[in-house]
């Protein structure tokens, strides 16, 4: 569910087909920089109504971002 939500949001923001996105997608290849990733993360916070601390988390791929969001949601479950 987290992947689908992030993928839909990202596809909408950069105007690509959501089917082009996978867990292996690297943000750099989409022209997405770290501040774009932060925007996605903050939109996810709004979506799930929770704070997501990033700390030193590496966020280079969809899997990284999905993993971070899922782990934070899991901590709060």
């Amino acid at each position: 569910m987290v992947f689908e939500k992030i993928a839909a949001m990202l596809a909408d923001r950069i105007g690509c087909d959501v089917k082009e996105l996978s867990m292996e997608t690297k943000f750099e290849t989409l022209g997405i920089d770290s501040l774009d990733v932060m925007e996605l993360l903050m939109l996810m916070e709004e979506e799930f109504g929770t704070d997501i601390e990033i700390g030193d988390a590496k966020l280079a791929t969809m899997a990284d971002l999905v993993g971070l969001v899922e782990s934070r949601l899991g901590e709060q479950a």
Binding site: S34, M38, L41, M42, I54
Partner: peptide, 11 residues
């Protein structure tokens, strides 16, 4: 720390 600064500032 750029990412955290960005988040703090926007909020």
């Amino acid at each position: 720390r750029g990412r955290e600064t960005f988040k703090y500032a926007v909020e």
